[in-house]
Design a protein around this nucleic acid. Structure first.
Length: 479
RNA sequence: CGGGGCGUGGCGCAGUCCGGCUAGCGCGCUUGCUUUGGGAGCAAGAGGUCGGAGGUUCGAAUCCUCUCGCCCCGACCA
């Protein structure tokens, strides 16, 4: 329950975030270092996220399956870059049933290796391809510094793993998924994420190409909100995923993997929420509208509840995710603040005056306080609430888009770049060399986020070294 | 792993430097009455042995040693 005010974003953004997650009832700290408990309200939000994605994956031919949590240690040693990337953050099981294990087992930090192993077993012929499997579950990475949702030791996600019989199709798959992720961000989460390619230093351990969607948080830091990788034949060679092609030649498969994690909840918080608490996009909100009945005496209560109950049933029947707040032990003022803290998009207040006038008060969460309140007739309320939900969804996306665009700056000199990334993103030409990328990181703590797919027609020169450059990249401090 | 902070009823804290009598306070919780259109009021209650272990002492939340854990800031990452 939300008892008191939040630290404001301007005071201390990190503290604001920590308090918000707890007070909005999304998650709690678990008794294990770096781990979180996702509370029912947070999980309901996650379920709305996953069900949309699940539907999209199935619509594009993917199927779900489950692979084990424990992976033999030796699997990690088969792909050189992969093991180097993940070795520092592995949790290892050394004992089982009171005995020391002959081969240590790793708690999966990601499942490329064990799925690669299984694919090698399953794939024999070109007829077995493509194979398009998604696993929903959790993984564990021994993180040094953790934060609820954004970076926890254990986190929840889906990981898609596909195998194909040619590179073009595998790359197409990578881009197809990235498009789904982008649509999810735009249409569902109201986050204007930018699609692009990761630099060599930022790409996934073992990938040939890593693409990402990058979003700007309220504090203007970037958050990688989804990734899609093309592995070429790296994992196929490490795990011997081979098949006989139509011409009877032995070929290595081309594989991909991709993921969006529970971190996306952190992104939604940091993009939309305000000093009153959580703000959720209506399409994903577990509760889209809450009814707060207001009354003084018992005879008022009877009349108010009669109307409130009727409206509740009507809106519920219309498919709106609605909640009746009939708590008798807290004041209506408390309820207003409480539901604002929890980010419910629309609040419907029904009091004696509304019963009389056959109206209700509608309050929209994206404009907190009294400013967001309007009075509308009870007749046609389904339509007015539905329209308001659509309007809020659009307003959140628009506001986030304007904010993002206002804080991305085209820069043409290195000094300008260093200045801009202190409080925003810089967009500039870059020669794609590791040296220039490292220099920027050392000088300003900003890293390359991604090289967006949409590029200007003309070419330019690298912001750091001045050599000719064909593509522009985003530089920003990131989470 | 380095730096900082913190472990005292469910939550937030005071008390710790300068040991001492019944370990306080706010919020929350329970019960009752009055309240309810922007975080209600009064009254009566319940609830802790002070993160853990050892030590010093007549006496330890307080001093000493060890230990466990959490949070924040930096180097790695969805």
């Amino acid at each position: 329950m939300a008892e008191e005010k939040l630290t404001t974003r301007a005071e201390d953004f990190s503290e604001w975030y920590n308090q918000l997650v707890l007070k909005a009832d999304l998650a709690d700290y678990a008794p294990v270092r770096g781990c979180m408990v996702v509370k029912p309200y947070g999980w309901a939000l996650w379920e709305n996220i996953t069900s949309w994605l699940d539907k999209e994956f199935k619509a594009t031919g993917h199927v779900n399956a489950a692979f084990p949590t424990l992976i033999p240690m030796s699997f990690f040693e088969k792909e050189k870059e992969h093991v180097e990337g993940f070795a520092p953050e592995l949790a290892v099981v050394t004992h089982g049933g009171g005995q020391e294990l002959e081969e240590k087992l790793v708690v999966r930090p990601t499942s490329e290796t064990i799925i690669g192993y299984m694919y090698a077993k399953w794939i024999k012929s070109w007829r077995d391809l493509p194979i398009l499997i998604v696993q929903w579950g959790s993984v564990l990475r021994w993180e040094m510094r953790t934060k609820l949702f954004l970076r926890t030791a254990e986190f929840y996600w889906h990981e898609g793993h596909t195998a194909h019989n040619n590179a073009a199709e595998a790359k197409e798959e990578m881009y197809r998924i990235l498009d789904i992720y982008e649509r999810f961000c735009l249409e569902e989460a109201a986050i204007p994420a930018i699609k692009g390619t990761k630099s060599d230093t930022e790409k996934f351990a073992g990938a040939q190409i890593t693409t990402s969607i990058e979003a700007m948080m309220w504090d203007k830091r970037a958050l990688q909100s989804g990734t899609s990788h093309y592995f070429g034949q790296n994992f196929a060679k490490a795990f011997e995923i081979q098949y006989l092609d139509k011409d009877n030649t032995l070929q290595f498969a081309e594989t991909t993997s991709w993921a969006i994690s529970s971190r996306i909840i952190g992104a939604m918080i940091m993009v939309h929420s305000d000093d009153q608490g959580l703000v959720l996009p209506p399409r994903l909100a577990p509760i889209q509208a809450v009814i707060v009945p207001i009354y003084k005496k018992d005879d008022e209560k009877v009349k108010v509840m009669e109307v409130a109950d009727r409206i509740f049933m009507e809106l519920k029947a219309a498919g709106i995710r609605i909640k009746m707040d009939d708590r008798d032990n807290v004041s209506s003022g408390f309820k207003f603040n409480d539901w604002e803290m929890r980010g419910v998009p629309v609040r419907i207040e029904i009091g004696p005056k509304d019963v009389e006038k056959e109206s209700v008060a509608l309050a929209r969460r994206d404009r907190p306080g009294r400013e967001g309140k309007t009075f509308v007739p009870q007749v046609g309320l389904i339509e007015s609430v539905s329209a308001l939900l659509v309007d809020i969804q659009a307003a959140l996306l628009q506001r986030a888009t304007e904010y993002r665009d206002a804080n991305i700056h085209d820069v043409t000199s290195y000094d300008e770049l260093k200045e801009v990334v202190k409080d925003g993103w810089a967009f500039s030409y870059w020669c794609e060399s590791k040296e220039c990328e490292t220099k920027v990181k050392e000088d300003s703590k900003a890293t390359t986020r991604n090289i967006p797919f949409d590029q200007p027609a003309e070419e330019g020169v690298c912001i750091v070294c001045g050599k000719p450059s064909k593509r522009k990249v985003y530089f920003a401090k990131s989470y």
